[in-house]
Design a protein around this nucleic acid. Structure first.
Lengths: 233, 233
DNA sequence: AGCCGACAGATCGTATATCATTTCAGATAT
DNA sequence: ATATCTGAAATGATATACGATCTGTCGGCT
């Protein structure tokens, strides 16, 4: 009894690989290859790719094929701007519903983040950052907004280049802002104040990233060669 | 030379019917029937439905089939809350980019809205309302946020019951708020003030709708009978 | 050498066919 | 009369097959 349809299976298969970076942006998704790898026909794979396309994780061009979405800088800006908006709102909506338990868990995660700064672990820092906000959003009463947050995060993950998500000088400030947001929530601040604080938290990170980028004079995003990231059979 | 793939054709076909109400919420989308009607096979139709599913316009259950999405009251609340958020942001982002031409066009539409109130034309009013905001969003620099606005509108359209989108006593206020928003933009107000004004504009409408609903004691949303809304061949 | 067109391989797009699951009507038993 | 069973019809899910389109390469021409 397969509890999961083959199209769902294909969806998870591809999605997993995009998330963990095995399929980098620009990697070409060939229907036939994926179908063979999963031992299914191309029809369910097409469906899976269509769904990923609707989620903006892959682009699909007629008679050409699909590839993991490439993020351009301007695209990145728009995504982060939207993310700031929905994260701010999600935080404000959740705030009045958070229990002391939530808050203490969030503080604990934040402490761990602080510790990852001593050892230099950008990847772990980023992970914990998502965990931190996930705790805050656990009680979010509006699933739509939560869904938008997740979409934003997924798009962010398409940037494997860590310089897009971690700026050394910025990390400490970020941890401090987390604490301040928790303070606001604990103090029962106005929802709008919480919303704007959370929003600024994201936009400040964005600004830091952009400053860091231009400072380090990174050349334009290059398209990775699909072949070079082929999965070894 | 068909510039449009059959799956896109099927998508537009269904989408059109959902938008204009021929397929009411709850209407069952039978793959085979739609395929025959379009004289294509079921494969492209499935793809089209998957895409609509990703847009939350239809629900698709394994081995059971697809139907036009049903909106529950709580769902409606979440949608409107999200819409208030993204419309507010879209308005604020657009504001500094609007030319006098945009503003005068918006005012003209708003005047027409005022006129529809004399004659009782709720449907026309709702149409013009979308037009009004569309003009404001023409220059929106963030396509993601604009996309979210459109998704919100589409979901709103699933509520064919006009009492969900038009409250007689509220309409006049709404027109007044439009003018006030335009005034703010024209005066070069702070983006945040514009954002909050636009947000309140939507939430106020929502509140009015809910008050109107409970006042008129509408029974719980009922699931329309798919058969009763069959298209006459 | 560089440009252009034809060919071949790869890949996508869709129709058709078959299998699986659900649904529902009608029969049967309690 | 109600509940349950059963089997056929409807519908969805997937595999396979074939045609269409694209892409890149090879050879000829200027």
């Amino acid at each position: 009894m397969s509890a999961e349809s083959k199209s769902q299976q294909a969806y998870r298969f591809i999605r997993e690989r995009i998330d963990d970076g095995r399929y980098v942006p620009g990697y070409r998704l060939v229907l036939g290859s994926i179908a063979r790898e999963l031992d299914v026909s191309v029809v369910p794979v097409r469906e899976a790719i269509r769904r990923l396309e609707a989620e903006n994780l892959v682009t699909f061009e007629r008679n050409v094929g699909a590839q993991v979405a490439l993020i351009q800088e301007t695209e990145y800006l728009h995504t982060m701007q939207t993310l700031a908006l929905v994260e701010g709102s999600a935080t404000a909506l959740s705030a009045p519903l958070l229990t002391p338990d939530h808050l203490s868990r969030a503080r604990a995660i934040n402490e761990r983040m602080r510790r990852t700064l001593d050892d230099f672990e950008p990847h772990r820092f980023t992970e914990l950052n998502l965990e931190f906000h996930s705790v805050l959003f656990e009680e979010c009463p509006n699933p739509h907004i939560l869904d938008l947050v997740h979409r934003g995060w997924n798009r962010m993950k398409l940037l494997r280049d860590s310089s897009f998500s971690f700026v050394p000088g910025r990390a400490l400030e970020s941890v401090g802002e987390h604490d301040r947001i928790l303070d606001l929530i604990e103090a029962g601040a106005e929802p709008l104040d919480i919303e704007l604080a959370a929003r600024r938290h994201r936009t400040a990170t964005l600004d830091a990233v952009l400053a860091y980028q231009s400072e380090h004079k990174s050349p334009a995003t290059d398209v990775p060669d699909p072949e070079s990231s082929e999965i070894s059979a």
